[in-house]
Write a protein that binds this DNA or RNA. Sequence first.
DNA 1: GTCTATATCGTGATAGAC
DNA 2: GTCTATCACGATATAGAC
Lengths: 226, 226
Amino acid sequence: MSQISPRPGRGRPRLLPGKIAANPRDQILAAAAELFVSRGYAGTTTREIADGAGLRQASIYYHFGSKEEILAALLERSVQARVEQAGKIEAGMDSVAPDAALYALAVSDMSALVAMPYNIGMLYRLPDVIASPVYDRYGHLRGELVAGYGRVAERAAAERVPAGGEPGLGDLLVQMVEGVISLRREDRIGSTTVATIASACLRLCGIAEDAIEQARETALTALAQT
Amino acid sequence: MSQISPRPGRGRPRLLPGKIAANPRDQILAAAAELFVSRGYAGTTTREIADGAGLRQASIYYHFGSKEEILAALLERSVQARVEQAGKIEAGMDSVAPDAALYALAVSDMSALVAMPYNIGMLYRLPDVIASPVYDRYGHLRGELVAGYGRVAERAAAERVPAGGEPGLGDLLVQMVEGVISLRREDRIGSTTVATIASACLRLCGIAEDAIEQARETALTALAQT
DNA sequence: GTCTATATCGTGATAGAC
DNA sequence: GTCTATCACGATATAGAC
């Protein structure tokens, strides 16, 4: 990154001076994220990215070596936050009730997904992204996420639901949680969305309605302290 | 389609005579399906499709007017079977127990998804497909599918789970059911997969374990008669 | 650090021979 | 009905001026 020298007045001025607020790298990432998510990776051109970022097509190559490098940066961002938060919650699992831990995991993970700029959590679903060589570097992290869900869920479910099926509880729950991605694409995230899905996760573990309600309150107060 | 004249000996012979078995239109569709699903729509070239179908790039344009027309044909195939089956099950819903109807709906829908060539059920998830103008012609059908799931599920759930949340039960269940698409992409469809997910659907409606087991048997015998 | 200009290649689609 | 040949365009990426 020594190539970046943010000294004012350096470099030829941009044509469109309206967007010099944030640093250009982030502007490029933001524009690319929006386009990748709405038109796909292969369906997005570097020219469109440049337009969105407010600079010229060629100028992108000062900040990134290739189009694929932009994708890699976005992929890393999109998985990092989720895995980190999930790890923290699983680490502190022993101090709270198992079902509250699951509720907290679901809520914090969905919050991370919803908070991501331009819904980049869905990059992982795109075939051309998965086929890309850069996917291999971050793909296994999502597997760890599923495994984490599985461990937390098995505890919460106890013996209430038949275990050992394929797909496992972790797969089912991650599938449910990532439903917010589709909902968000359709602009359907409301004030009750996250709570509704989190409750559904506990229901999927055979937890009764009153216990779900209790786990919800425990989880929310625990999350508020973080 | 009057342009198709399958008289033997007509037309210049193909370079690669190995694949003349089925009709060329279907060969093109099959090749396109495999590629769209593995590399995305925009990421697939007509040359690659032609290679997969065993003819030359330009020859595709005898069977389809454009690349988009190929996509439209695949989209139609992928939604038709699901909506049809769902409609039949919902129509015969009164004659079986509500929870058995839901189980049957989930199983038959997942079976349709699993039976689709090259997992084309996932075309609906691709941003460049959704952004394409041809999507508008078939997109609303998926909405009807969700609504159908919602009606069947509300009956099965009765008053056991809080209703009226966003997302609705239909959204949650379709989300679960379409999880087979991801599993299939990862080659993880086993003998218990469909049953596990169908049971999870009922669990999501607050149905108890023994009732789930009973619904399963009722549904399977009902489906066997069809 | 961003620009203009351009090289080089790949794309979807068309024309016309066979 | 499939071929060869090619057009017109748009893609990523590079070179070098400012």
